[in-house]
Design a protein around this nucleic acid. Structure first.
Lengths: 185, 185
DNA sequence: AGTTCCGGGCTACTATCATTAGCTTTTGGG
DNA sequence: CCCAAAAGCTAATGATAGTAGCCCGGAACT
């Protein structure tokens, strides 16, 4: 019988499929093995253990987000860039809620995780370039933007906003609130 | 030999201790059983299964937060109430990061969860009373406040802000940003 | 073409955990 | 004092992570 022809990358892709289809809680080596048509122990040839697989999934998701967001804001600047970044962020999470939940919430121990996280962070930093913020102010503003985006988007993805009121409007209001706090010439 | 004298509430308390000491990932029936000095299957006399135990822990945490936050803002109003609520929120999560992570992030299926969630939400609603917001505006503002608080606090608890810049200042800035968006006479 | 050898996949096994079944015993109310 | 319900226990099952060690497919090299 022919081989499955797996690789670490293929295993991570299968893991992402499992996450997308059945949620982060269903990400087990058994599920990934079933999906790749291989016995569970065979996966250990490609990933060290399940914690490492989760890290690799996290890296993949963060890298994907960084690229996607970067593409969206390229060629834009100022309020336009901020607004587009936030909308792209929200749209991504609505399309892939489970994937977003697969991002690590604890300190990034693995260097690869740090690297991917930095790339993602840099999109937020870049979008605030051009407002003339000094080093310290830029850091605070970046943190605010992250907090606002992550807060809204994670509550929304978890079904945390339960009233009928239009969510688009709430999000616009948040963005306006942030933009208004930035210096404008 | 005497009985352990457990109860559902005592089991939940032990579960909270496990969470506080070893993190949400260590919350297993085995760990709770060890801590209460009982065999694992005995716990089923008090909780239906581990998913129910997690829900009960979530309810306990949300109830505790609602009470704690409510106490903090009582007798206050306006910007003062908002500011105190946000600081109390942040302080709570810094003191009990694992407990905060034990709050459910998915839709609140259990009615008890909904009830506790509503009590917690009501503190946020209450703090915005007095700004003269109409029904719809109050909902949007409440959502913004939740998003800002949850976003910052969960990133901080996860060690997500890694630069040396003062976090207190970032948080103040976020609060100011929100307060500035509210109508002031 | 034949041979080698390494890596990828497999089976078998262990340990931990959730959960069920069914037995024993404490204990509080008649 | 008795007895039934509640609370605990042991034993067993099934899922999952992880380890050890075997085997074979196929590329590389004569």
């Amino acid at each position: 019988m022919p081989r499955a022809g797996l690789s670490t990358s293929a295993v991570v892709s299968a893991a992402l499929d499992v996450v997308d289809e059945q949620g982060i809680g269903a990400l087990t080596l058994a599920a990934v093995a079933a999906r790749t048509g291989v016995a569970t122990p065979s996966l250990y040839k490609h990933v060290g253990n399940i914690a490492e697989l989760r890290d690799l999934v996290g890296v993949r998701v963060m890298t994907e987000m960084a690229e996607h967001f970067g593409d969206a804001v390229i060629g834009r600047s100022g309020d336009d860039a901020v607004t587009v970044l936030m909308h792209t962020y929200r749209d991504y999470v609505r399309e892939h809620p489970a994937r977003y939940a697969a991002m690590p919430t604890d300190p990034l121990h693995d260097p690869a995780l740090v690297e991917a996280g930095t790339r993602l962070l840099n999109v937020f930093v870049a979008v605030l370039r051009g407002y003339g913020l000094d080093h310290s102010a830029a850091i605070h503003a970046t943190r605010c933007l992250r907090a606002i985006g992550h807060g809204f988007v994670s509550i929304e993805a978890g079904g945390g906003f339960r009233l009928a009121e239009d969510l688009d409007e709430t999000y616009e209001q948040l963005i306006r609130m942030f933009v208004a706090s930035l210096p404008h010439p």
